[in-house]
């Protein structure tokens, strides 16, 4: 039997917010223009002893029906929006949140505002970071007004937890799971993925001691059943 990756991480978000670019930046350390993703792309990342699979999904509505397939059994979901486009944040809640029904029940969430290099003001990153963004790309292009602020993301994060009926106290705190990045300049991208992995992997260990052996199938099946019965009743 082939060995499945230990952890599944899924990138979700509207078309053109930069999911593929984020992943390219992280995996290949460079930024290049991409075209619209078809379906989903799979990347394998070794993280210590674990292999982490990252699914970069298509944001196009055409593939919307498949989102739940890519999400099945995911241990972490990264929601991506475009800081210069408020609608992209709205879409997350409207379209993409429901896709996570098939994710693992204790799935963790991260909310990422991409394209901060485009905006006029420096992103107000959380203080722990203490790093000033924007320098890399200042002056390169005309800045647009930032439409989405971190606070919006934080409140979305809370709503996500509520939707998933997760306890806010047990889930990772919002400040730690809301990010602002720029795939173009590379700002905060590694930090994003590493924080997510760091949060997910300990959960994995915890689970390994528990009754279920793998993250994927068992959990996803449970999740599936849960959803279905919920619907029927």
């Amino acid at each position: 039997m082939l060995k499945k990756p230990d952890v599944k991480v899924v990138l979700l978000g509207d078309m053109n917010v930069g999911k593929t670019s984020l992943l390219h930046r992280y995996v290949e350390k460079k930024f290049h223009e991409t075209v619209s993703t078809v379906g989903g792309a799979f990347y394998l990342k070794q993280w210590g002893p674990h292999s982490i699979s990252i699914w970069d999904t298509a944001g196009r509505e055409q593939f919307h029906g498949l989102g739940s397939m890519y999400c099945r059994g995911a241990a972490a979901v990264i929601f991506v929006y475009d800081v210069s486009n408020f609608q992209s944040l709205v879409e997350l809640e409207d379209r993409f949140l429901a896709l996570t029904d098939t994710a693992s029940t204790d799935c963790i969430f991260a909310i990422v505002g991409n394209k901060v290099d485009l905006t006029d003001e420096c992103a107000s990153v959380n203080e722990t970071e203490g790093e000033k963004p924007c320098h890399a790309t200042t002056g390169s292009t005309a800045k647009v007004r930032k439409q989405v602020h971190v606070e919006d993301a934080v409140s979305l994060y809370k709503r996500v937890l509520k939707y998933k009926m997760l306890d806010e106290k047990e889930a990772p705190p919002a400040e730690k799971m809301c990010f602002e990045t720029s795939a173009k300049s590379g700002f905060s991208v590694d930090f994003l993925f590493e924080s997510v992995f760091d949060t997910v992997v300990p959960l994995l260990k915890k689970k390994a001691n528990g009754p279920s052996e793998t993250v994927d199938l068992t959990d996803s099946n449970k999740a599936m059943k849960g959803t279905r019965s919920g619907c029927c009743k």
């Binding site: 995996v27 619209s36 993703t37 078809v38 990347y43």
Partner: peptide
């Protein structure tokens, strides 16, 4: 054509309905 028109294919493995 689909493959040629999608640069995302150049890295990683694609899984897509067609």
């Amino acid at each position: 054509n689909l493959i040629g028109a999608s640069s995302a294919f150049q890295a990683g493995e694609i899984w897509t309905p067609i």
